[in-house]
Design a protein around this nucleic acid. Structure first.
Length: 227
DNA sequence: GACTCAAGTGCCGTGTGCAA
DNA sequence: TTGCACACGGCACTTGAGTC
């Protein structure tokens, strides 16, 4: 099971706790640091997938810390700042920030933007490594090919994308809004049943080939999970 | 024979309604 | 709230008739 590790470097403990709580609730492993030195050490020593960096840190201010981390490790960094001036945003982007969020920030927006940055990053990483191999199931992105126990299965482009996202995020509950955006490239609508239909067809095909139905599980009111 | 174009066909994605 | 069956529309591809 792959857990996405986030590092939150934020001096405001209340804000940090709130943000970390929301992120943990989505299954992320979150390390919190409250000053820049501690944050720098954690960023360099731990195996982190994404950093949320407060721009107004004491000791080493945000821009300097961003530069130091960016020189050392190539991971996505999102900057949170109360100073939402165009010039400062440009400076952060120039120094390697992957996203900029103005405070006070909405927790849902932060969460969605974290997901978006991670998605962009992982998509880039996965562009060339295009095979997923999980137990008896093999997915080849280039040929959009699905094999179960060595038997070839026919999937439509959307069905393949949906299965790919679920297998790629194995054990994680993938929310419907996320799947709509990632697979169908449109916003989730409560009464839109398209995704359910695609998932139903994928499940049917895999079960017919001998896969246990509960491996492609529905998490009531939350989304779907492949295990 | 080569080309164009309309009609037919099948696949895919979506919407709706019903049952669980 | 979800799974499923069914119907429908859009689109691409194939086929066959008509024209040059």
């Amino acid at each position: 099971m792959t857990v996405t590790r986030l590092l939150v470097i934020e001096q405001d403990k209340v804000f940090s706790d709130r943000m970390s709580g929301v992120l943990r609730g989505q299954g992320y492993e979150v390390t919190q640091c409250f000053d820049s030195q501690q944050g720098l050490t954690a960023a360099l020593s731990k195996n982190i997938d994404l950093i949320l960096l407060d721009a107004s840190l004491p000791t080493i201010e945000g821009l300097s810390l961003l530069q130091r981390i960016r020189i050392s490790i190539p991971i996505p960094i999102m900057v949170l700042s109360a100073e939402n001036l165009e010039q400062s945003r440009i400076e952060y982007y120039q120094q390697g920030a992957d996203d900029f969020i103005a405070k006070p920030a909405n927790m849902i927006e932060i969460l969605l933007r974290v997901k978006a940055v991670l998605r962009r990053t992982f998509e880039q990483e996965n562009k060339n490594s295009s095979v997923l191999d999980v137990d008896q199931l093999t997915l080849v992105r280039a040929q959009q090919q699905v094999m179960f126990n060595g038997d070839h299965l026919e999937f439509t482009p959307i069905q393949f994308r949906l299965l790919w996202v679920l297998v790629e995020n194995r054990y994680q509950v993938m929310s419907k809004p996320y799947l709509y955006q990632a697979v169908l490239d449109r916003a989730f609508s409560r009464y839109d049943r398209s995704l359910d239909m695609h998932l139903s067809r994928i499940r049917k095909k895999l079960v017919e080939m001998g896969m246990a139905a509960d491996r492609l599980a529905t998490v009531h009111g939350k989304g779907y999970r492949f295990a």
